[in-house]
């Protein structure tokens, strides 16, 4: 909840967190995926699930997060 409110404030005041847009985008996305991981592990109870399921979810979070950070930063032209 606190992370959501923090993202809200950062979203209204661009440049508040970092001057460079890439760093601010990366920070916002990392916070979002951190929240997503919390939802998956605790709300969806994957933290206590069999390893295959847990690893699949972790992989989805990791790949999506890294992929989006790289692509929104414009570092890679696919």
């Amino acid at each position: 909840m606190l992370i959501s409110i923090f993202s809200w404030v950062v979203g209204i005041n661009h440049g508040m967190l970092f001057e460079k847009a890439f760093l601010e985008s990366a920070a916002i996305l990392i916070l979002a995926f951190f929240k997503v991981r919390l939802v998956i592990m605790h709300f969806m109870e994957v933290g206590h699930a069999p390893t295959t399921l847990r690893l699949s979810c972790e992989a989805w979070v990791f790949v999506s997060c890294i992929g989006l950070i790289i692509m929104t930063g414009g570092q890679v032209q696919v």
Partner: peptide
């Protein structure tokens, strides 16, 4: 994810 991606990232 949709919210920061579409609404927030500068």
């Amino acid at each position: 994810i949709i919210f920061p991606l579409v609404y927030l990232i500068p």
